[in-house]
Simulated scan of single mutants.
Amino acid sequence: MSAGGGKRGRVLIVAGSDSGGGAGIQADIKTVTCLGGYAMTAITALTAQNTQGVHGVMGVNPAFIQQQMRVVLDDIGADVIKTGMLHNAEVIEAVAEVLDEAPGIPVVVDPVMVAQSGASLLEPEAVRALVRDLAPRASLITPNVPEADRLIGTEIADLEAQRHAAQALLTIGVPAALVKGGHLPGPEIHDVLASADGLEEFSGPRVRTDQTHGTGCTLASAIATGLAQGYDMAGAVRRARAYLRRALETAPGFGKGQGPVNHAWTVQPFDGKS
């Protein structure tokens, strides 16, 4: 199916909280909601964060992360599960255990490793756990270029290397990989989707803005919402890119650093008169 099939689109998001509201759980909930889906959450960590950086991280007990996931799945259920910040190996292992209890639900993995400000959000040993425990359970993984570099252990300097990286990611057990090219220079951004069907590229002019906080979370959650609503993989990626592009173009300019995108551009304000 290439277009939405009328499903509501239940998305369970397993990720960290961003107190600044531009990334993490907050960006995920906004994205899913503004695209007509239904967002549920299992919070993995609290961050003290704003547009200028990450100032503190407090992890949630892995057993409680599992409890959050299980009670939601047992009651409401999910059409897609999306993971974001899973900051250490113990958390990744705990999440993977619950994913095994929910076979048949597609999983979108955003391998959050570094914040937009440059702060590390994934402990070194957790990279190995992500490849070992999470990738084989994923339907799609959505690394940017620096994250793909770390996952496959090679440097991505241009579009051709980006294509090779997307294909290489399939060897870690994930059926589809979207390597995002926003970190590479040039007037156009290329995102490369690799799957058993081959490579598909999505390209468009770069939006010239420094208001890019939470773009990775937003794109992955938009894709997850599309899949939950019945889009096929390419269709979900295509709509997600269009949604993010407009959110970048209309960014509100909040904060003193890299500000958030405008997640709510799809929403008609309620004036209280109707």
Rank of each mutant, 00 (worst) to 15 (best):
L46V: 02
D210Y: 09
I43V: 15
E200L: 13
S117P: 07
G4R: 14
R208S: 15
S203N: 09
I25N: 03
D100Y: 05
A15N: 10
V95W: 10
A89Y: 00
R239W: 14
D28G: 04
A161R: 14
L227M: 11
A89P: 01
Q116L: 12
G153D: 08
F202E: 06
A247D: 15
H164W: 12
G16T: 02
D133Y: 11
E147M: 14
Q68K: 00
P106H: 13
L227R: 10
A23H: 05
G253E: 08
E97W: 08
T250D: 06
V145P: 05
S120H: 08
K180E: 08
D191S: 14
D100A: 13
L122E: 05
P187K: 08
Q67N: 05
L12V: 08
R132M: 06
D232Y: 15
A89L: 03
G182F: 01
G173R: 02
T266K: 02
L122I: 03
T218I: 03
E155G: 02
V112K: 06
L248P: 04
G4Y: 09
A247L: 15
M233P: 11
A39K: 02
L159G: 07
D232G: 14
A27F: 02
G84W: 05
M85W: 08
L244I: 15
I223T: 13
T51H: 00
G182N: 00
L159I: 11
I92D: 01
V127N: 01
V131Q: 01
A94H: 06
G21Y: 04
G173Q: 03
V32D: 07
I65K: 01
T33Y: 11
T142C: 12
T142W: 11
M58C: 12
I81W: 06
H183M: 11
Y38Q: 07
G21A: 04
T41I: 07
P136C: 02
A240K: 05
S17H: 10
A240T: 03
A148N: 04
P124L: 00
A96K: 01
T41V: 12
L159R: 11
R132C: 04
F254Q: 14
A126K: 01
D79E: 14
T83H: 12
T44W: 04
V237R: 10
K273L: 15
L35T: 11
H55V: 01
L193Y: 13
I172P: 00
F270E: 15
A39E: 01
T44A: 05
P185I: 04
